[in-house]
Design a binder for these strands. Structure first.
Lengths: 134, 134
DNA sequence: CCGTATCCTCTGAGATACTG
DNA sequence: CAGTATCTCAGAGGATACGG
């Protein structure tokens, strides 16, 4: 059978993952943990101006998804370490492809935006209104 | 110099692209246009339950980013066709990698969630509280 | 140190109605 | 057909304070 998920249907798995990627904080945490284990407050300093609430909340959902591992050590005061799971690492690598796209093409995107914000004219020369006949 | 963008800084290019991907509607539109050109209302039917407002708005920003091309034909009533640009196609292909990840790993994610929602126990056998000493 | 609880704000998406 | 213009409302997320 192997029915492929239909991304046009809300609630489809693909869509749920995509929403995760859309979660800017989640992505930043994945990236931050790529270089290794970090403690709660270390993460907090690394990801400038993330609120305590969002860090805690996002970490919890990443842990729930099996992407991040949380380890508590009974020191005083308590120590909590976060790291990527194997699954988390595969996702962060995939996300990395996206950041490569961004770095490679951001220039084109910005150029397109400038064109659009002026008189929206595509790369060719014609100045004013793009309007074809048929 | 070639300074790499710092994703931890809001407003960095990478982050802007990531936010785009997080925009569920934008991704759905890119995917919908992969198979070819579509008219406004065709897109609307294809992407079930997207509102007119969001479709129009998202298309506009995708056009601004140079990812989608908009062509107007002077028929009566007017005809408007949307298609991917070359740039848009490269992005939609990259996004496709992400959907592949989703399809490949959604099972693991859901399994992790079930474990978490019960007594949060990692894959090993120990039942109750994960807590290490040091 | 590592969080949770509470309150409060403000954006952003949906519904609806109207136009070229 | 292909949009724009308003309105409303929920809920994401920041600030703050407190607890284990």
């Amino acid at each position: 059978m192997l029915k492929r998920p239909d991304p046009f249907q809300a609630l489809c798995p693909t869509r749920r993952v995509l929403d995760r990627i859309g979660d800017s904080w989640a992505v930043l945490i994945l990236v931050a943990l790529e270089d290794g284990t970090l403690r709660f407050n270390a993460l907090r300093r690394r990801i400038e101006n993330i609120s305590q609430k969002m860090l805690s909340q996002t970490l919890k959902s990443l842990e729930r998804d099996g992407l991040v591992r949380r380890e508590v050590f009974a020191t005083v005061p308590v120590t909590v370490e976060y790291s990527l799971t194997g699954l988390g690492r595969t996702l962060s690598q995939t996300v990395h492809q996206l950041t490569l796209w961004a770095e490679a093409h951001i220039g084109e995107v910005e150029a397109a935006q400038r064109r659009y914000d002026q008189g929206l004219a595509p790369p060719d020369g014609r100045s004013p209104a793009p309007l074809s006949l048929r």
